[in-house]
Every structure is written in structure tokens, then in C-alpha cells.
Design a protein around this nucleic acid. Structure first.
Length: 637
DNA sequence: TTAGCGGGCGCG
DNA sequence: AAAGCGCGCCCGCTAA
């Protein structure tokens, strides 16, 4: 198989001994727009290093040996260069692992592609095929499988001994393809009209290129810096609770076997089926969603086990077993395995995965670490600051609800917020006609002293909160009734009361659907747009799903925009240079910094200020941030 | 052995 | 018939 199905310029090759290297260095340094890619020892962003690397600029393409890297210092240090990459943060890490920082801009073609085609794959090979119909063999097809027997490094060593020209061609293809994608995607982004969800932002964002250049491109650098910093963990603590957890799990298993009268695997849904549905003849409480196979399976998830647990100790034991094995496998063992030599964890914050524009976190996922409610072993206490430092944890108060108020301009919802009321308690007061103070008082009172009226107040607040979120998500009455433990009729009447109180919110949800119908897209504050073809589907279930996305995406996506802008502004404000205060994590509506003790007050004030004013113009509703410093994530929350 | 899927469940 | 948005990881299971 040929490597390409198109013609390309000849691939140049250099290493540190090449006689014409200096000429090439000069030309590379002069080119201000260029793509770069690395062939590495592996996929670890804090450990692996480049073996070969490739460049493309203008009509040239080259593969270089890692030994040539030191000759390009001026190019790497040039702040005016725009580096074009595919999976930019990864290559930037690999280069940083040998002391090279790309000081210019980082443009990532995968992120560019995701703004236009969020439903498609953003792997370089797939983008090239999608945009140009180009194909070339991928790494594993060219060199062999990476697995237990062969590492990436061994494959490259084999290739360089066997057929160096094939290796050079392969490496240069990636840089060449990346640069070609950049030009094409820039042109498509410039021709993609969009608009801000909010009038005041509209003049700044006219095309998706504006969104890319003003938000996503600078954000890539912020995320790279955040990943690079990593977050400190107390590995000794995790290691110390692991045996405890194992012992608890084993004890639970022994109880399970005793009760069942035999040994079976409590982790296996199939064996749970056998036990509950065939031996005990239980009837199904609920069914799983139909997947590809179209089979409706009886569920044995925690909500089902909870129903059974009231009369069946086995269900209670299994719930306990699930909780403990989840915590142990995913977090206690899982997290410790990811620590670097300084006990810091470097997650990957994906910028091109979530359809709404949110980040996703992987390897490991640090955005799903249990909160206080599910944190039996205080796992958030294992995320710490270095000695002499504090973690500063800042999170938005009800960001999505405030953005709903902004988007709908609902005067009553806005007035609740402007009075400084807790939004859910305020909603409960407005909707159900109770004095706000009564609800506040009920919330404060110890559980044992609650009067019936207090309980009613708390139920009203819970209802207002659930309806508020449910509205954003498009929850149905059945689901609402389920989570409020009331009848469908009562749930419907509560929704009616909510929407009668917040009339503009009611209108917004219809407007959002109407706009998506008219344009085919859902839009956010910064003009991100999500293609929603299913909004016009003739299939009712598909269309309903499209409608839920149409009203959710503007809110969830705008919340993502807000946090991104805050992070970009904070990076520009240079807290790292001025205070050694560094960003270490983002969890959707929460930003975590690590800060030297002496700079904590100043840094906190600046973080709060930038988070509350993320745009050049303030929104119709103030944004509020809770901020706290402590020795660990647990302490500072 | 590995890859892919489904079930289950952690977060916002 | 089912009807909540957005993610990633662990485990069991099956197919290759």
C-alpha cells in the first residue's frame, strides 16, 4: 500500500550531523506559521520523549532526528510563531519533557475541526480523509502493533534500522497533513457565521473563527499549562487506606457468600440476574435502555437494589460492595498509579470531546472524584498542596441557573438573584408563596427539631431545585415525580406553578427550540454552535431528544464559555509569574489553583474577580463565586 | 491476548 | 415504549 493517495513535496531529512542543518534552521525560524509533530517513546505526557519530529511550512516537509532539536532553540522561543499541531498539548508535553517550550501560539486542528463538526472523529487521519479524501497508513499499520510485546519506542527502533525512509515519510505525513488541515479549517471557520446567545457579546463574535482565535486557541495553552502543573496527591495516604478498603470488601463478600449459601461474583450483573430473577423470582423494577442489540435487560442498578434492600439484606450488602469496590478500584488504586515521581497527577483535559464545549478529563479522570456525600475515605483529602502552599478552590454559585436567568431575562428570577437570595430557596418562596425567611430557617434547623411546616418548606425547596435543573435538562413529569416521590399529577402541577412564576423562563425554553428549528443549531454566549439535525426528525423520540439538547446546550455550553474565559483571563493576568500561583485543575464550574501561603489573600481576590467578570461586558445577572483556601481539596471545599 | 460492548456509577 | 444534559473508568463478558 502506498503511503499517500496524493502527491506531496519531497521529504527532507536532518539530524545533528547534517551539513545543511544551519540553513534549514534559519528557514524554519523565519517561517512564522508551521506545523510540528513528534514520534515518541510512548503516550505518557510527563515521561515520554521525542525520538523523531517533523515539520511542515509553506511547500516544505521534513523529518528530523531528536538530536537536531537543540539547534532550533530560537524558533521554539519565538513568541510570534503560530505552531500548528494535531493534539497540540500532547506534543507540547513531549517537547517539554526534554526542556523545550513552544513559546508561540498553539493551534490544534483537532479543536478547530470539533467546532465545525462536533459529531465526527477528530483524529488527524480521519480529519484528512473527511476534508480531502486523503489516506495514509497509521502508525500501527506502518510499524506494527503497540502492545505488551512492543512499545512505541521498540517499533520506531525497528523501523529506523529496517527502513529509515519509510519512517521519515510517515513522520512528515503527519506534519504535512496537519498544516493542510489548518488552512482548510481556518477557511471553513471564517466562512461559518455564528452569533452570541447574548446581544452584548454579539459584536465580538461573528464567525466560528472569532470563537477559535479569541477563545479556543489561547485556551489550549492554558490547558497545557494546567496539565503540565498537575496536582499533588498524598500517595502515602492512598496507599494506607487501600488495605482497609480491601479488607472491608472481602468481609462484605464473605457475608454475601454466607447469605447466598454459595460463592458468586457480586461484580457480575449476569450472576446477579441468576440470583434475584431466577432463584428468588423477583420481578423487574426497571429495565435498561435499549442498546445496539435492542435487548431490554432487567436492571440491577443501585436504585433497584435500594428498593429491594428494605426487605432483603442481600441487596443491602451488594450496595455496600458496589460502593467500596468503586472507590477502591477507580480512585484509591487507580489514582495512585497515575502519580509522577513527585506524586503529582497530570490529567488530560480534552478540548474537543464534549458536544457542548465543556472539557472532559481522562488518564485519569479528575472530574469525577467523589464529593463529600460519597467520599467514605475522604479521597478529596488526598489532593493536596505542596508544603508551604495552599489549594485555592473557587466555584461558581449556581452558574447554570444564573445563565438561564440571563438567557431568558426573566425579571422574577433576576430579582431573586439580585436580592442575594439562594436561588432554589428563592424560587421555592416565589413559586409556592411562602416567606423566604421561613425556608431559610427550615434549612438551618437541626433535623431532629423540624416541624411539619419546616418539612413542607424543605420539600418546596427540593422541588424548586429539581424543577430548575429539570427544566434545563428537559426532564419529563414521570422522572420528576420519581425524584420528588410524588404523583405524576402533583409533579405536573409543580412544573406549572414554576413556569407560571417564571414566565420568561417558560418562553426561553420554547425560543431555544424554535431557534434550533429555524437555524439547525444551538448557540452559546461565545458563539459556539452545535449542529442539531435531529430537531427536524419525523421520529418523535429523536425529535424530543433534539429539543432537550436545544434547550440544554445554550446553558451548559455558555457555562463552559464563562469558565474558559475566566481561565484565559487568569492566565493572562500571570498569577504564575507574579505569585507562583498556578492552575492545577478545572471541574466544569470550579477552578483550583496551588498558591504559596504568603500570596493566598492577593491571589484569592484576583481569582474571584476574574471569575465574576469573565467578559468585557457584565451580564444581566451578577456571577458569584465561592472561594476557599486549604491544605487539601477536601479542606478547601 | 486483545478489542469492543454493556451495565453500572462517579462528577458537574 | 420511553421519554434528563454532558462526560470517563472499572468490571464482566464475548468474539476474534
Amino acid at each position: 500500500m502506498t503511503t499517500w493517495n496524493i502527491d506531496t513535496p519531497k521529504t527532507e531529512y536532518y539530524d545533528h550531523t547534517s551539513r545543511d542543518l544551519q540553513n534549514f534552521v534559519n528557514e524554519v525560524t523565519a517561517a512564522k506559521l508551521k506545523s510540528i509533530d513528534t514520534e515518541t517513546t510512548g503516550l505518557c505526557i510527563w515521561k515520554d520523549i521525542p525520538l523523531y519530529w517533523s515539520l511542515a511550512f509553506g511547500e516544505r516537509r521534513a523529518t528530523l532526528h531528536a538530536s537536531a532539536l537543540p539547534y532550533f532553540t530560537d524558533a521554539f522561543n519565538d513568541p510570534t510563531t503560530r505552531w500548528v499541531l494535531a493534539r497540540a498539548k500532547y506534543d507540547a508535553h513531549i517537547l517539554a519533557n526534554v526542556g523545550i517550550e513552544l513559546k508561540g501560539q498553539l493551534a490544534d486542528v483537532q479543536v478547530m475541526h470539533s467546532l465545525l463538526f462536533c459529531e465526527r472523529s477528530h483524529r488527524l487521519k480521519d480529519i484528512c480523509q473527511h476534508l480531502f479524501g486523503w489516506r495514509w497508513m497509521d502508525f500501527q499499520d506502518t510499524f506494527g502493533k503497540i502492545g505488551k510485546l512492543q512499545t512505541a519506542e521498540q517499533l520506531i527502533r525497528k523501523a529506523e534500522a529496517h527502513d529509515m525512509s519509510m519512517l521519515a515519510e510517515y513522520a512528515a505525513n503527519d506534519a504535512w497533513g496537519t498544516l493542510a488541515c489548518y488552512h482548510e479549517l481556518k477557511s471553513q471557520l471564517e466562512q461559518a457565521p455564528t452569533h452570541s446567545l447574548f446581544r452584548d457579546i454579539a459584536p465580538y463574535i461573528r464567525t466560528l473563527w472569532d470563537l477559535y482565535e479569541k477563545v479556543e486557541m489561547p485556551y489550549t495553552k492554558v490547558l497545557w499549562f494546567t496539565e503540565r502543573n498537575g496536582i499533588q496527591i498524598n500517595k502515602a495516604y492512598l496507599d494506607s487506606i487501600s488495605p482497609t478498603a480491601v479488607a472491608e470488601i472481602q468481609a462484605t463478600e464473605r457475608e454475601i457468600y454466607k447469605l447466598a449459601g454459595r460463592a458468586f461474583n457480586p461484580r457480575s450483573p449476569a450472576q446477579l440476574h441468576q440470583y434475584f430473577f431466577e432463584e428468588k423470582k423477583y420481578t423487574a423494577v426497571k429495565f435498561n435502555k435499549v442498546g445496539k442489540t435492542g435487548v431490554r435487560n432487567k436492571s440491577v442498578d443501585s436504585s433497584v437494589l435500594e428498593v429491594w434492600a428494605s426487605h432483603d439484606p442481600m441487596a443491602a450488602l451488594l450496595l455496600k460492595h458496589r460502593e467500596y469496590t468503586k472507590l477502591h478500584g477507580t480512585y484509591i488504586v487507580g489514582l495512585a498509579e497515575h502519580a509522577d515521581q513527585f506524586d503529582r497527577i497530570h490529567t488530560t483535559l480534552n478540548q474537543d470531546i464534549a458536544r457542548t464545549g465543556r472539557l472532559s478529563s481522562a488518564d485519569p479522570n479528575l472530574q469525577n472524584v467523589p464529593g463529600a456525600e460519597n467520599d467514605k475515605w475522604k479521597l478529596r483529602g488526598a489532593f493536596v498542596a505542596r508544603p508551604g502552599h495552599k489549594l485555592i478552590v473557587a466555584d461558581y454559585k449556581q452558574l447554570e441557573m444564573r445563565l438561564l436567568a440571563c438567557a431568558s431575562l426573566d425579571p422574577d428570577m433576576i430579582s431573586v438573584i439580585e436580592r442575594g437570595w439562594d436561588i432554589h430557596m428563592g424560587s421555592a418562596a416565589m413559586i409556592f408563596g411562602k416567606p423566604y425567611e421561613d425556608i431559610v430557617a427550615a434549612k438551618k434547623r437541626p433535623h431532629a427539631q423540624l416541624t411539619d411546616y419546616d418539612k413542607e418548606c424543605l420539600a418546596d425547596r427540593a422541588a424548586a431545585k429539581t424543577i430548575g435543573f429539570g427544566l434545563i435538562y428537559g426532564m419529563g413529569t414521570k422522572k420528576l415525580a420519581n425524584s420528588l416521590h410524588c404523583t405524576v399529577k402533583e409533579a405536573q402541577s409543580k412544573i406549572d406553578q414554576f413556569l407560571a412564576t417564571y414566565k420568561a423562563v417558560d418562553a426561553f425554553k420554547d425560543e431555544a427550540i424554535k431557534e434550533a428549528m429555524a437555524t439547525g443549531y444551538a448557540f452559546t454566549i461565545m458563539g459556539r454552535r452545535r449542529d442539531l439535525p435531529e430537531i427536524a426528525s419525523h421520529r418523535n423520540d429523536e425529535r424530543a431528544s433534539g429539543e432537550r439538547k436545544a434547550r440544554n446546550t445554550p446553558i451548559q455550553g455558555s457555562a463552559a464559555d464563562v469558565v474558559k474565559m475566566a481561565q484565559i483571563n487568569l492566565y493572562k493576568a500571570n498569577l504564575h509569574g507574579r505569585y507562583n500561583c498556578i492552575p492545577v485543575l478545572q471541574v466544569h464550574d470550579e477552578i483550583i489553583h496551588e498558591c504559596p501561603d504568603e500570596a493566598v489573600p492577593e491571589a484569592m481576590a484576583e481569582i474571584q474577580d476574574w471569575m465574576e467578570h469573565p467578559f468585557v461586558i457584565d451580564l444581566a445577572v451578577a456571577l458569584e463565586v465561592d472561594i476557599k483556601a486549604g491544605n487539601s481539596w477536601y479542606e478547601a471545599k
